[in-house]
Design a binder for these strands. Structure first.
Lengths: 133, 133
DNA sequence: CCTAGTGTGCTAGGCAACTAATACAGTATA
DNA sequence: TATACTGTATTAGTTGCCTAGCACACTAGG
């Protein structure tokens, strides 16, 4: 099963993207509490990255209490993880939106123009990925 | 005169932020074609960074044709720079908004929740900085 | 002419982040 | 017990950003 997708041609660290994607998988229900997440080595092979990079992502997720290691078995989704991942996701998205708007205002862009972009992009996102799988 | 503001506690390279801020200054009318931008050394002193870092920003801006050096004098805002800086700014903001929405959708966040965040943050931005200078 | 200001180019070094390779410790299963 | 899987820790190497110092070419102004 393919849970993650690093495609995003972003400049963020790989381990951070992996961690985010795993959070999203939990928030979206693809991974549920008690489930075993893909092993470090397997996920590394799947994503064509070094196992340490994956391990780093899991380490961060553990320090947030979202995943729990079970030696010899794998890494398990923690109990209250769903709600916390949803909240994390919400704050992540919100922070990005907020920052973009903030910068637009600081650059003295016309409020009407900012609003137009917001409406336009929201509309585009809804029409393009509408009849999707 | 203080044109720039690096405060943004972001993780982007300093030179990139300086370049963006200069573009914004042109787009917003604080710097007009023919005006001399702050000298490399002066701006470096003002921002408490190394002159090379500022020079790097100007170098990038020149390669985009937005600023033109005048030897012995300083760096001048190019002729058609205003519209191009506005366009650059527009695309920059648009890309950020688009990316945030895109990621929200990829994470399977409910469209209604995404829209709520967009409306909420836009409303907040407008009420907080309303009666501003 | 001469001084002080401009931008430009170069080399060097430090520092932090990221990735990688390897070895180690524990557990399931045959 | 032996094998093969798990996660973990340590160490190294690469890269990019930033700083630093210096030399060079040019120009305005005294």
């Amino acid at each position: 099963m393919i849970l993650l997708d690093l495609n995003s041609g972003e400049e963020r660290p790989i381990y951070a993207r992996i961690a985010d994607q795993l959070k999203f998988a939990v928030a979206g229900g693809a991974l549920r509490p008690g489930d075993l997440a893909p092993s470090v080595r397997e996920l590394a092979k799947q994503l064509l990255v070094n196992p340490n990079t994956v391990a780093r992502a899991y380490r961060d997720l553990q320090s947030e209490g979202l995943f729990e290691p079970v030696r010899g078995m794998g890494i398990q989704v923690a109990e209250g993880a769903v709600e916390r991942c949803r909240q994390s996701r919400r704050e992540m998205i919100r922070a990005r939106i907020r920052r973009a708007i903030e910068e637009a205002r600081e650059s003295r862009m016309e409020p009407s123009e900012i609003e137009a972009i917001l409406r336009d992009e929201w509309a585009k996102a809804n029409q393009s990925t509408n009849g999707k799988a």
